[in-house]
Structures are given as structure tokens and as C-alpha cells.
């Protein structure tokens, strides 16, 4: 299948040759028991394919400097749709990749729940082109952390807050980083939604 060739090539493009000294690893203060990040050619983004399945990738994005997300590391999962060859229905790259945050993040364009869906025009079916590349997608996700797009929100409440009450937004986003995005590199650090969190988002009863 031609898809495999493309996917492995793209992975190489994302990872590149082993990095020159001080390029990336030093940027992240690895904590005790942290996972080792794969090499990368991208700024603040690391990608690694599943050992058994080239179509599933783990992605880590470092909260960009001078943003509310600074200091956090966000883990994402990417799935490349697999096509069925005989019927001619194309998988990747004829269909766009699916990408979700697994680390909770407070962001107008990411659902504020455990699915972490991202609203990104590049990976919408009608915008995606077979010649579009994963690298571009990952960079676009990171760009979304630098510059949220409140006019096309997934979380309208957060978008409103971002537009009208920036201070409150920053406070909330930073507290999410503290709570969820600090220990991302530690093995088995997957933090799930706490009861408190669910209650906080539920409409208050009088």
C-alpha cells in the first residue's frame, strides 16, 4: 500500500535525523520518571508512531513561550484513517488525520472534556488535500496555542471569556496547565477529570 510509504516518510520528516546537541531535549526539563522524547525537526513538537501501528501517533506539544500555556506539555493522539484498498476508498492521505488532545487544556478551540476535539480548518474534510502534510497540521495546532481563534469556537463560553474577560481566561488557562499539563512526561500520568471539575462546569442549581 502506498499509504505506508508516505506515512513513514512523513514520520522521518517530522523527526528528522538525531538532533544536534542542545536543540530540543534541553528545552524540556525532564522530571523523574519522564518518558524520553523522540528526536524532532519541529519547534516545540515531538512525534512518535505506535510501535505496532504506523497509523497511530503520539504527539507532545510544549506550551509556547509567552503564552498562557507556557510551562506545560500537552499530549495529543493522532489517528490516520486506514483505507480499504479493494473498494478504492482512500484512507490517509486522501482523508484527513484525526487529532485530539489527551491532556486537558482550557482553550476556545478545544473541547473542554476528555475527548479534547480540536477545531482546525486544515483537517476538515472539505479543506484537507491529499498533498497536505502532517507536519503542517502539527504546526497549525501549536499555532492555535499561540493564537486561539475565538471566532470559530468549540467552547463558546471560553471563547466569550477570551474575547471579553481576558484576565479571567488567562487565570483559568494557567490553572489548567498547573493541574493537567505539568506531569505529562511522567509515565502513567494520565489525569482524568475529577469530580470537582465536572461539577464546576455543570449548570449551578439554585
Amino acid at each position: 500500500m502506498s499509504g505506508i510509504r508516505r506515512v513513514s516518510k512523513e514520520l522521518t520528516e517530522c523527526q528528522g535525523p538525531p538532533p544536534p546537541e542542545g536543540k530540543d531535549m534541553s528545552k524540556v526539563k525532564l522530571q523523574d520518571g519522564a518518558a524520553i522524547l523522540p528526536p524532532t525537526t519541529m519547534e516545540g513538537i515531538w512525534a512518535k508512531a505506535d510501535n505496532s501501528n504506523m497509523y497511530r501517533w503520539d504527539i507532545w506539544i510544549e506550551g509556547p513561550a509567552n503564552t498562557v500555556y507556557e510551562g506545560g506539555i500537552f499530549k495529543l493522539k493522532m489517528e490516520l484513517p486506514e483505507g480499504s484498498a479493494p473498494s478504492g476508498t482512500g484512507g490517509y492521505p486522501f482523508k484527513p488525520p484525526k487529532i485530539n488532545f489527551t491532556t486537558r487544556i482550557y482553550h476556545p478551540n478545544v473541547t473542554n472534556d476528555n475527548t479534547g476535539d480540536i477545531c482546525l480548518s486544515l483537517i476538515k474534510t472539505d479543506v484537507w488535500k491529499p498533498a497536505s502534510k502532517i507536519k503542517g497540521v502539527l504546526e497549525a495546532v501549536r499555532q492555535l496555542l499561540i493564537e486561539p481563534n475565538p471566532d470559530d469556537p468549540l467552547e463558546t463560553r471560553i471563547a466569550e471569556e477570551y474575547k471579553n474577560n481576558r484576565a479571567e481566561f488567562e487565570k483559568n488557562a494557567k490553572s489548567y496547565v498547573q493541574r493537567y499539563a505539568k506531569d505529562t512526561l511522567k509515565e502513567n500520568s494520565s489525569k482524568t477529570t475529577t469530580k470537582k471539575e465536572t461539577l464546576k462546569n455543570a449548570p449551578s442549581k439554585v
Binding site: S2, G88, T89, G90, F94, K95, T125, D126, P130
Partner: peptide, 15 residues
């Protein structure tokens, strides 16, 4: 041509 064909099939048949 293969990629073109697959692309067009997907667009016309599926979408």
C-alpha cells in the same frame, strides 16, 4: 495518476 484517481473517486463517490 493513481493518486489522482483515488482522490477523484473519494470526492465523487464518498463526498
Amino acid at each position: 495518476v493513481n493518486c489522482y484517481r483515488q482522490y477523484l473517486t473519494q470526492k465523487i463517490r464518498e463526498e
